[in-house]
């Protein structure tokens, strides 16, 4: 789990080009949206693509997205349970 969390932090910083944020700056329970990292819907579309590409995890509806994209921990837990690669 720890390894996945750290991997996700790196991917988020790299793929979303979060300037001036280092992976280690992101807390495991930091909210993705509505404050926290302050991501927007277009960022989410990128994250959805990253999960699909890198882990074979598909998130294609709002209800699931609402449960998974709360913070890094909820995301990592969902990947652990559903990853295909």
């Amino acid at each position: 789990m720890r390894e996945l969390l750290d991997e996700l932090k790196k991917k988020i910083v790299t793929e979303l080009e979060l300037m001036d944020i280092r992976p280690e700056d992101i807390k495991d329970d930091e909210a993705f949206f509505q404050g926290g990292l302050g991501l927007a819907s277009i960022d989410l579309l990128f994250l959805v693509a990253v999960l699909d590409n890198d882990y074979g995890v598909l998130i294609d509806n709002k209800e699931l997205g609402e449960k998974v994209f709360i913070n890094l921990t909820t995301l990592a837990e969902y990947i652990m349970q559903n990853r295909k690669r």
């Binding site: 949206f33 991501l39 819907s41 959805v48 294609d60 509806n61 709002k62 997205g65 609402e66």
Partner: peptide
């Protein structure tokens, strides 16, 4: 509607 952060998730579908 695209005003909330979840709005684009179902786009490809």
């Amino acid at each position: 509607p695209h005003f909330a952060w979840l709005d684009l998730i179902p786009l490809l579908t």
